[in-house]
Simulated scan of single mutants.
Amino acid sequence: MSAARDFLPVRIAVLTVSDTRTPEDDRSGNTLVERLEGAGHTLAARAIVRDERAAIAAKLREWCANPDIDVAISTGGTGLTGRDVTVEAHRDVYEKEIDAFGTVFTIVSMNKIGTSAVQSRATAGVAEGTYLFALPGSPSACRDAWDEILAPQLDYRHRPCNFVEIFPRLSEHQRRK
């Protein structure tokens, strides 16, 4: 039996991608903030950007370069319409994609919304030692992703493994030899 670990708070930025949302009516962003703060993590930054690929990627790159941000979670723009470019913007930034994230999110969604889950393109990756997650724009999808995937994976105490314990190794390839 292994020794119990102490909780380690993670510094998380929340990005809402929308042409219409404002801070007053950003229900999905609010859902993520409530969940992450309720879990004991720190809200490191928050922003709303329009559904523009370059603007989304620029904000993600800015946050990846910020040593006070460990994780960036975006909500919105993961669907199939012409304006849904969040996934492409995320992939413009990724050094490595976390392929299984979208699969696991689809499994979680299937249990909630059935075959409608096929319409989401939720994705995740790593860049500059920062985790990046792209979630759909509905509060229920944000709740499902947080409760079923992110909360355990962003908790250092979660076994057998979690994202937090490998933070120090995410950018080891950038160290001098």
Score class of each variant (00 low, 15 high):
residue 19 D to V: 13
residue 47 A to R: 00
residue 94 Y to D: 08
residue 39 A to Q: 10
residue 11 R to M: 05
residue 133 F to M: 08
residue 168 P to R: 02
residue 143 R to L: 06
residue 143 R to A: 04
residue 22 T to A: 08
residue 119 Q to A: 15
residue 74 S to T: 15
residue 165 E to A: 10
residue 156 Y to A: 13
residue 8 L to Q: 06
residue 144 D to M: 02
residue 35 R to M: 15
residue 159 R to Y: 04
residue 29 G to F: 00
residue 57 A to G: 08
residue 52 E to V: 15
residue 65 A to Y: 07
residue 161 C to H: 11
residue 31 T to E: 06
residue 168 P to F: 00
residue 22 T to V: 13
residue 125 G to E: 05
residue 89 A to L: 10
residue 152 P to K: 07
residue 80 L to D: 15
residue 100 A to F: 14
residue 82 G to D: 05
residue 56 I to N: 07
residue 141 A to K: 05
residue 70 D to P: 02
residue 157 R to F: 13
residue 82 G to C: 06
residue 88 E to P: 14
residue 67 P to Q: 10
residue 133 F to Y: 10
residue 22 T to L: 08
residue 123 T to C: 11
residue 102 G to H: 08
residue 58 A to L: 00
residue 176 R to V: 14
residue 58 A to E: 00
residue 127 A to L: 08
residue 88 E to T: 04
residue 17 V to A: 00
residue 134 A to V: 10
residue 52 E to M: 09
residue 12 I to K: 01
residue 43 L to I: 01
residue 99 D to Y: 12
residue 48 I to R: 01
residue 4 A to K: 04
residue 63 W to F: 03
residue 104 V to S: 05
residue 67 P to L: 09
residue 54 A to N: 09
residue 98 I to D: 02
residue 167 F to Q: 05
residue 144 D to C: 05
residue 140 S to T: 13
residue 145 A to T: 08
residue 79 G to K: 09
residue 106 T to R: 15
residue 32 L to I: 03
residue 124 A to C: 11
residue 159 R to T: 07
residue 143 R to C: 06
residue 65 A to M: 12
residue 98 I to W: 15
